[in-house]
């Protein structure tokens, strides 16, 4: 596969990602043998536990050494290892078009991240799917296992135009119900919605056994206002306007953003998920590397 054609996965970027791995904390259910723990026991080298022999079990499974010591028939069980199914949930609402201090718009930045994560997943023989959403799911691609099969997903990234409003909660609920097997969901969004609603979706995912990695992509100017004086702000998604005296609100705004980020972070961690605040000023490689090395 030639990667030179992909906007969000240029060869140099792919080279830098080569060798990175992406893991999960919990057990996942993959379709094939893989490197991740499965909730099931099966044939593998990883010892799991013992259980008493019952009628119907194959006598070949009896651990005779234990029988010799304890005069009991027990069977040795092994942890099944499976591949990882991951879905990249990419927010394409209009607020993602914002760019002030960063090198890219939040959308482009998120696309780079999505491409990078999908590339890493396929590189380690896991499968990666893509869900593009704003108010609802706009487009979805089932998980693919090879880099070659990533092509439609990468091309889809290139065709994204940020439009509409974002409804992360709804999308998380839908995906939690649709995906029956335990999977990893990498949510890439600016998460500019009510934190309570977002976390409801995250908890739903967690309840269904999925693992969530939340990457909140923000422009630095969104974290602290980098302008002064009287300004009339126009919200990208709704067109709503507000006149503010920036100097009056600067500190209050930064504090409110930090409080919001704190809520999201805590909510994600409470659900054994990952949360990562991503500034569009940061190097994309570093962001991916930070998540990849988390395991």
């Amino acid at each position: 596969m030639s990667t030179s054609a992909y906007k969000f996965l240029p060869p140099q970027f792919a080279d830098r990602l080569r060798g990175l791995g992406l893991g999960v904390r919990g057990r996942v259910e993959g379709g094939t043998q893989g490197a991740h723990r499965s909730p099931h026991q099966g044939a593998s080298v990883e010892f799991s536990d013992f259980r008493e022999y019952v009628r119907g079990d194959s006598p070949q499974l009896i651990d005779w050494s234990v029988y010799a010591r304890s005069d009991k028939y027990v069977i040795r069980r092994y942890q099944e290892e499976t591949s990882l199914r991951a879905f990249v949930l990419l927010d394409t609402s209009e607020s993602m078009a914002f760019k002030e201090e960063g090198a890219h718009t939040k959308m482009d930045y998120a696309c780079y991240l999505a491409a990078g994560f999908m590339y890493i997943l396929c590189s380690q023989a896991d499968s990666a799917g893509l869900v593009i959403f704003n108010e609802g799911i706009k487009n979805s691609f089932p998980p693919v296992r090879s880099i070659a099969n990533l092509r439609p997903l990468l091309l889809a990234l290139e065709g994204i135009k940020p439009t509409g409003r974002s409804n992360i909660e709804d999308v998380l609920h839908k995906m939690a119900e649709q995906v029956k097997t335990r999977s990893l969901f990498i949510v890439i969004s600016d998460c500019l919605a009510d934190s309570t609603s977002i976390l409801r979706g995250v908890r739903h995912m967690h309840h269904n056994g999925h693992e969530v990695t939340m990457l909140q992509v923000l422009d630095p100017a969104e974290m602290y206002l980098n302008f002064t004086g009287l300004a009339e702000l126009k919200e990208l998604e709704t067109g709503e306007r507000m006149v503010i005296e920036v100097d009056d609100l600067k500190d209050a705004y930064a504090a409110e953003v930090q409080r919001f980020i704190g809520e999201l972070r805590k909510g994600c961690l409470d659900c054994r998920g990952d949360y990562q605040l991503v500034s569009t000023k940061a190097e994309i490689d570093d962001v991916i590397r930070a998540r990849a090395t988390m395991v």
Binding site: F98, G229, L233, E237, Y253
Partner: peptide, 26 residues
């Protein structure tokens, strides 16, 4: 009134959370 600079912004969510108090006082 003083000519205001118009600028697009990703969200007014945070302003709406803090402004009810500040805006009224202002």
């Amino acid at each position: 009134r003083i000519r205001k600079r118009q600028r697009p912004f990703s969200t007014l969510m945070f302003f709406q959370r803090i402004s009810p108090r500040l805006s009224a006082r202002r």
